[in-house]
């Protein structure tokens, strides 16, 4: 077990959601085991965030790949060193060194530079939109908790 607040089952489910977010499918057994092991051996991954909002981003991200992406977009701007970002970056590191996922992560799509640059502009706009959506979701939840 990695941490009293993070049982193995929770970490495995978190790994599945985050891997689906990053590469579009479930992790293999090796990646799953490595993700859990990382939490056992690197205390920085389990160390809670000081700000409640940053912890809520993690809770939001665990709910599914699309919410993980929105929470990540928000964290990148407002909480770049939060626990969510630490976990996602650690998982990315695991996936990039495993033969089964390395190429998926780092093979160019081909096509023209102009189309790529246009997509980059759209991605930036979409990432901003996702970050905003995540903030709104957290705000609604807070209102719901109060009300």
């Amino acid at each position: 077990m990695a941490d009293a607040s993070e049982p193995t089952a929770l970490l495995e489910e978190e790994c599945r959601v985050f891997t689906r977010y990053l590469v579009g499918h479930d992790p293999d057994a090796g990646a799953l085991a490595a993700y859990v092991r990382a939490h056992e051996r690197d205390a920085r991954l389990s160390h809670p965030d000081a700000r409640a909002r940053d912890e809520k981003l993690l809770l939001l991200a665990r709910r599914g790949p699309r919410r993980a992406r929105a929470a990540d977009a928000c964290a990148r701007i407002f909480a770049p060193t939060s626990r969510l970002r630490r976990k996602l970056v650690c998982l990315l590191a695991v996936l990039e060194v495993r033969g089964s996922t390395a190429l998926e992560l780092d093979t160019a799509d081909g096509g023209s530079s102009a189309v790529f640059l246009a997509r980059c502009v759209l991605l930036c706009a979409a990432a901003g939109g996702r970050a905003l959506a995540a903030l709104l979701l957290l705000s609604f939840e807070r209102l719901g908790e109060r009300g």
């Binding site: 977010y21 990053l22 992406r69 929105a70 990540d72 977009a73 990148r76 996602l88 970056v89 990315l92 992560l105 780092d106 093979t107 160019a108 799509d109 997509r119 980059c120 991605l123 930036c124 979409a126 990432a127 996702r130 970050a131």
Partner: peptide
């Protein structure tokens, strides 16, 4: 960017 978008840009 979020990591998914950043990965697209990077690769």
């Amino acid at each position: 960017l979020d990591l998914k978008s950043a990965l697209f840009v990077f690769k």
